[in-house]
């Protein structure tokens, strides 16, 4: 497998790990107010208003989706018109086979519009987010897809506050864990020790639920 390499370029990050989305959002807003540049946040679920707080613009994928839909619609028309009118009109019962039967092309045009929009948009989404089968993820916390929310700050960027101040601010905002030189990793690089720990916590939780 190849690496995703958004984070893996030997970069070091200052990270604050939160266990509550409201606290994370508040921390992002506070850091932004103080002029700290945030690299990105990693959350197990979509946190509302987080993208606005981070200053991200709404994605342009919708325009792409519209264009794909238009292409699908035109393809549907071209397909039906070429086959049934231009190339080989099937005259059944003397009924006309020209542009006047346009209405019976509508279902196919409609279905192809939807098909092209869906596939076009999802493919664009994967391309834009650098997702493909077999690519390796890069994580800052093993639990960022479980219950941890990671706020990452790129150490190479110049910040208005010192590293120490940022760490203190993150703690004050309720981060359960802070680290000023965290490197990205992927699960294939995780130590066996960590795996055993997770396995243990998993087993205890199973027992608990069974007792209930």
């Amino acid at each position: 497998m190849v690496d995703k390499s958004i984070l893996l370029d030997n970069k070091k990050f200052t990270v604050g790990i939160f266990d509550d989305s409201d606290k994370l959002l508040h921390a992002v807003n506070t850091l932004k107010e103080k002029g700290v540049k945030i690299f990105d946040c990693y959350t197990p679920f979509p946190v509302h208003h987080l993208d606005h707080a981070l200053g991200y613009h709404r994605t342009n994928l919708t325009i792409g989706a519209f264009l794909c839909g238009l292409l699908g619609c035109l393809s549907g028309f071209t397909l039906a018109y070429y086959m049934n009118v231009v190339d080989w009109p099937m005259i059944i019962g003397g009924k006309p086979q020209d542009i006047s039967v346009f209405t019976s092309f509508i279902p196919v045009m409609f279905e192809l519009t939807i098909l092209f929009t869906a596939f076009g948009m999802v493919i664009m989404f994967f391309a834009r987010t650098r997702m493909i089968h077999g690519i390796k993820e890069d994580l800052l916390s093993r639990r960022q897809t479980d219950d941890h929310m990671v706020l990452a700050i790129d150490n190479d960027q110049d910040q208005s506050l010192s590293n120490k101040d940022i760490l203190e601010l993150l703690k004050k905002e309720g981060a359960i864990e802070v680290n000023d030189s965290k490197e990205a990793f992927n699960t294939s690089l995780t130590s066996e020790e960590e795996l055993t720990k997770i396995l243990k916590s998993n087993k205890t939780s199973t027992k608990k639920t069974k007792k209930k």
């Binding site: 993208d51 981070l54 948009m121």
Partner: peptide, 20 residues
């Protein structure tokens, strides 16, 4: 890992994901 396509839950991805 193969089917997760490298998903890491970044805020940017989630923003796009929700629109899609």
């Amino acid at each position: 890992g193969f089917f997760a396509m490298g998903w890491n839950g970044s805020a940017k991805s989630w923003g796009r994901y929700e629109v899609v």
